[in-house]
Write a protein that binds this DNA or RNA. Structure first.
Lengths: 109, 109
DNA sequence: TGCCGTCATATTGACATTCGATAGGAACGC
DNA sequence: GCGTTCCTATCGAATGTCAATATGACGGCA
């Protein structure tokens, strides 16, 4: 039960998706649920954001996908991080840290 | 001198403008320079972002403005935080802190 | 007087991203 | 069959940012 549900900060969606997939294969809604979980319910990714983003990341070569039956026996597309995706996750994490630090510093001044 | 210049995270522009004005009256370009200063050169706000944002914030009642001669004797519009603007700065700061914390937690998991 | 560089505000057009709403198919329980 | 849940998918709209450019005023200088 989240206290507040924030809309995503633009630019963090890719990062969160890559992170959600870093612990293993998931299908679309699974990614969405994982993001909600690791952000403590702070961020909820809508389908209209999620699927275009997944396609974009796959297009970029950071994700690979295959069709498979879900745990509820529905057809689902499972995504995995590619090696390039794992590298990208590292870069985006570092990028985020730099930005968050800069803003934190600015807000303290 | 900045090592890297990032484009703004969408949603942080208002926050940075309010913060830049929290230490006193500034005109448009002065706000821009102040942001660059307090973020250690990390963020540079372009005119095409800056002026619409200033107008938006004034429209919202968070800024007040008046025409005055600049330090170089050009006509410049000086902006000040209103009381509501100061309150807004507090809220947006708190909001940012919650978001940054949630993402930091997510990235550590 | 005329020209130019700088300062400063402002607008325009393009672009990416996110969201809300909606659609639609497939499996399951009844 | 029928509704419900699960899952992928697309569309339209709104928003926010940027790059490029326009406009004008001042000061310095020849």
């Amino acid at each position: 039960m989240p206290h507040e549900r924030a809309s995503l900060l633009q630019g963090t969606l890719d990062l969160l998706i890559l992170k959600a997939l870093s612990t293993g294969e998931r299908h679309g809604l699974g990614v969405s649920r994982r993001i909600e979980q690791i952000t403590d319910g702070m961020f909820a990714v809508q389908p209209g954001s999620l699927f275009p983003a997944l396609h974009r990341l796959e297009e970029a070569g950071w994700l690979a996908s295959r069709w498979e039956a879900s745990e509820h026996n529905r057809r689902a597309k499972y995504y995995t991080l590619t090696r390039a995706g794992r590298r990208q996750l590292g870069e985006e994490t570092a990028h985020w840290n730099r930005i968050a630090l800069a803003i934190a510093r600015a807000l303290k001044a």
